[in-house]
């Protein structure tokens, strides 16, 4: 069966003053209908740009330099403006970290929701209002009739994000791209929003691409994880396997750096060199290179303990390893 989304060899560059910077480097993944994928990585790893380029929304100095994004069989990198308009916000919805990127502060929530429906569906105002109310109930907004007439600033941060999710649901999309939807929220509210997203994806059979840097959050919500580093995917596979027994040295380092794992030793990292003192965390030395000077060969080679000569000369490709998982590393069998 045809997957919902098939991204292959996607490359996005930004034209800078004298060079081009590769923000997304040869990224490929597929997403089945109703499947949930987590895209994790550090700041600047290229997660957001990947999310935007799926919708062909990379802004100015940036451009899609290669690869394709097949959504329900259509290649969005080559689609006409009209096709894209029909797909954005209709078949694929996006949720951002800051709810105010989606909400217009001077219009009531009701107006914004109804306009969105009317733009994509041939329904009357009455029907549109009914749909809006229905979606507000789905995201557990109390007394939705009254809330429809309120402005975004009258809601708390968590409520606003729920409204944004309701707006994303309006057109019953088959894919939601959520870019750090809970980073600005408190843990208790984050837990609620994540519950809600998970529940909705399951009940509506929606696909989800969850972009975040929080491994805890993705591990609870998604079925697959792709770990990004310096613009490329370094490891991808079943969520339980990736967080349970990470293959790639970067993923292992990242998980080892989490206090949760240092305390509990239940993250399958028993073979990672034991921390010196009990309380010390496992740290990866150095920091991610800026995308304008990624080292030759493996982009992780200047921080990697296992680095060998081949790592400094040849870039490892994302390939299937012994247990069926994908990793980009020369040293992993």
């Amino acid at each position: 069966m045809q997957p919902l989304l098939d991204v292959s060899n996607l490359t996005v560059k930004f034209a800078l003053r004298d060079t081009a910077l590769t923000a997304v480097n040869d990224v490929s993944f597929t997403l089945g209908r109703g499947e949930r994928l987590g895209l994790v990585g550090e700041s600047g790893a290229g997660k957001s740009v990947t999310g935007f380029s799926i919708l062909n929304l990379v802004s100015k100095p940036g451009f899609i330099a290669g690869g394709s994004v097949l959504f329900e069989g259509k290649d969005l990198t080559r689609a006409s403006a009209e096709t894209l308009r029909d797909i954005r916000g209709n078949r694929i919805s996006m949720i951002f970290q800051d709810p105010m990127m989606t909400l217009n502060p001077v219009l009531t929530v009701g107006t914004q929701m109804i306009e969105t429906i009317l733009a994509h569906k041939k329904v009357t105002r009455k029907e549109a209002e009914a749909i809006a109310l229905d979606k507000l109930r789905k995201v557990y907004i109390p007394s939705p009739e009254r809330r429809l007439t309120q402005y975004p600033h009258e809601f708390s941060g968590g409520m606003r994000q729920r409204i944004v999710i309701a707006i994303a649901l309006l057109t019953s999309p088959s894919l939601i791209i959520a870019d750090e939807p809970t980073t600005a929220l408190d843990v208790t509210i984050q837990a609620e929003i994540m519950d809600l997203l998970l529940e909705l994806c399951q009940s509506e059979d929606m696909g989800l691409i969850l972009i975040t840097h929080d491994l805890g959050v993705v591990s609870q919500v998604t079925q697959k994880i792709a770990v990004m580093y310096a613009g490329g995917i370094v490891e991808m596979g079943d969520t339980g396997m990736v967080v349970g027994e990470p293959l790639h040295p970067y993923t292992r380092g990242l998980l080892g750096a989490l206090p949760q794992c240092a305390d509990k030793a239940d993250c399958g990292l028993a073979d990672v060199a034991a921390p010196r003192a009990r309380r010390r965390l496992n740290q990866i030395p150095g920091s991610m290179p800026s995308l304008s000077d990624v080292p030759r060969g493996c982009p992780f080679n200047n921080r990697c303990e296992l680095c060998e000569t081949v790592c400094t000369t040849t870039r490892p490709l994302l390939e299937v390893k012994s247990d069926g998982r994908l990793a980009a590393c020369h040293m992993v069998a």
Partner: peptide, 24 residues
Amino acid sequence: QALLSAIPRIGGKAAGHIKLSGDV
């Protein structure tokens, strides 16, 4: 209790947390 139950534990399951009603 509510705060601690909301920590996203790696490998843990979502929806195991104590739900608080109302806003701060």
